[in-house]
Nucleic acid binder design. Structure first.
Lengths: 354, 354
DNA sequence: TTGAAAGCGCTACCAA
DNA sequence: TTGGTAGCGCTTTCAA
């Protein structure tokens, strides 16, 4: 293990490894406790001593060893991050938010998983091994093993864009409101035959959006929307679009709701390839508000999720529980924003963005 | 710290906190040393004892505290990850590769940065504070501060998709070969007036691709390609496309090389909006091989980077240096793969994919 | 084959 | 205002 020759970098002030509280104490002629306190700006340390130690620390290139600090009983400052398939830009955008907002709070992210499917068991262990203070989950599912680990060890969990079925808090877009709003929009625009492309069957997000969309359509007196099985990828949306294009004309919907933008984009690509014009022949709407959906080929009418706010609220929930406080599990629903664009025929008077 | 009411979840075997080597030792009636050795499968421990302790560990839900293990002198098992702007799916795809390949090697990723611009100084510190064993950088630039930190502290650094200017190893696609190959392709297809949309001016990736593209074009007897200033985003490509469309007809190129797919996609969107047909009026080619570039609206002719191999080689380089071994800095160039698609008129005999 | 002791770097408690 | 001591959880000599 350690018998390899240690090539400890170039001329650091500390000849033999990095500066420590101990080495600073020796050089300053004070005790380690004093150094520790001075470095943390403990008001009990005299200004002179504090300044001297601070200068010394800078000179020596001192960096506190967070691991040791954590060992003695504090927080690790680490948040476990679990991401869904980043083929969906939604997760990539969410990740970028998470990184910057975590940094703003002095936290670091331990990237545990990214991709489809649940966390592997071995990875879930890392969450304990590194003593993460909390966990931010955005994947389709927290593996039951990981969930058990968190629950059993008091690691707070917050799911973003998902409502947890078992353990933990959640921050989510108001998916029911979103589904209903899109249905109302399509109805008002004069559409009579709706279809919905479903997402991952196991996710609350997909279910809620699809259900409320259908319920609203029926409440408006339309027949139940045709249900097309989709998935979580562009490819799944594409396949769904092909299926729609293959429908006999009498059964073809005049408006389609893809429960996520990436899905709706796939469907749009397939429908256009089949020779249909959007929104001339068929209107398409999605949800999420991802960047690519706004670009010229798509100009997707969608409900944008308030991503920054969602991540922020998620971290608030985490922070409140990291102290060890026993708080009730909380579900926060944030309202999305309708962005009317050219992918759908719009109700009279509604003007598309851009 | 520990006097707060600990909501220690459900019936963990250890009533008061997590199981430790010490607690297992007490329960097994042996010393901590023995437990430590047994858990690490030290051959000196008798099979019976080892089995007994292993069983006990499982029963108690024991997880080693990596932080403590690191403290005593070992590796942290942490790799710092620095990502560029994830608006470019290339970085998102790279991240997914990095996560799975790191996990396969028993490493975890500390996500330090994601987005445009260099790491903030405060973030760079984290890399020392958490004692990362190495660093994987894919951002436009390692801030000079972060570079200095790594160099001064013997933290191995590998840049992926970038050739480091100062410190560290690099794994990159053979960008010169890629640029030249695309130029040859366009020339062979009969194009006479080429243009190139440049990327971030500071990155080796962009410079190499653009330079070799231009050199090859001129070597084939064409005039120097028009240089259009681009950037790193779809928006930058879009602006470049608008600039091209605004050119007087006599100056308009008949083929455009965007040094990255995302850039080329933006340009294509703008050119189409300006009423030009692709590849009828203008051929467009890119580089990277990102997923969205293969979809119907784009069908981008591109050179795909061998992402998995690049990440793998990057981790190899890191691994070799993490022991502390003093190895020369190494630059690994991997060859990309041409994927001819419909965004460009192709040379006779070359058939587009899909 | 096992145990005792020391120490990694840091903070907290109790004295002074 | 400062120092001494102990201990977080683990590994690793050195002894037995």
């Amino acid at each position: 293990m350690d018998d390899e020759p240690q090539a400890r970098g170039t001329g650091r002030a500390e000849p033999n490894g990095r500066a420590t509280v101990g080495s600073l104490a020796r050089r300053a002629g004070v005790s380690a406790s004093t150094v520790s306190r001075a470095l943390r700006n403990d008001p009990r340390i005299s200004p002179e001593v504090r300044a001297r130690i601070a200068a010394l620390a800078v000179e020596a290139g001192y960096t506190p060893n967070v691991l040791a600090r954590t060992l003695v009983g504090g927080r690790s400052g680490l948040i476990g991050l679990v991401l869904g398939p980043v083929e969906n830009p939604f997760y990539a955008e969410l990740m970028q938010q998470a990184v910057s907002q975590a940094a703003a709070r002095g936290w670091r992210l331990l990237l545990l998983h990214a991709g489809p499917g649940p966390i592997e068991d071995a990875t879930a262990e890392a969450l304990l091994q590194y003593r993460v203070d909390g966990c931010l989950i955005t994947s389709a599912e927290l593996s039951s093993r990981a969930a058990a680990i968190c629950a059993a060890n008091g690691v707070p969990v917050v799911m973003v864009n998902r409502v947890a079925r078992e353990h933990g808090c959640a921050v989510s877009c108001d998916n029911r409101a979103a589904g209903a709003e899109l249905a109302r929009l399509l109805v008002a625009a004069g559409h009579r035959k709706l279809a919905v492309i479903t997402g991952n069957a196991a996710t609350s997000t997909s279910i809620e959006r699809a259900e409320s969309f259908a319920a609203q359509a029926m409440a408006a007196g339309l027949p139940a929307p045709t249900i097309i099985t989709g998935g979580a990828s562009h490819a799944a949306g594409y396949a769904a679009g092909q299926a729609i294009a293959a429908l006999p004309l009498a059964e073809r919907p005049d408006a389609v709701f893809g429960v996520s933008d990436i899905l709706a984009m796939g469907a749009m690509d397939a429908l256009r390839e089949a020779g249909l014009s959007i929104p001339g022949d068929i209107s398409i709407v999605g949800t999420d508000g991802i960047g690519p959906a706004s670009r010229p080929p798509y100009r997707m009418t969608t409900i944008a999720q308030p991503l920054a706010a969602m991540v922020g609220r998620g971290m608030d929930l985490l922070l409140a529980r990291i102290g060890g406080a026993v708080l009730p599990q909380e579900v926060v629903l944030l309202r999305g924003t309708l962005i009317p664009r050219h992918s759908a025929r719009l109700p009279p008077g509604m003007v598309p963005v851009s």
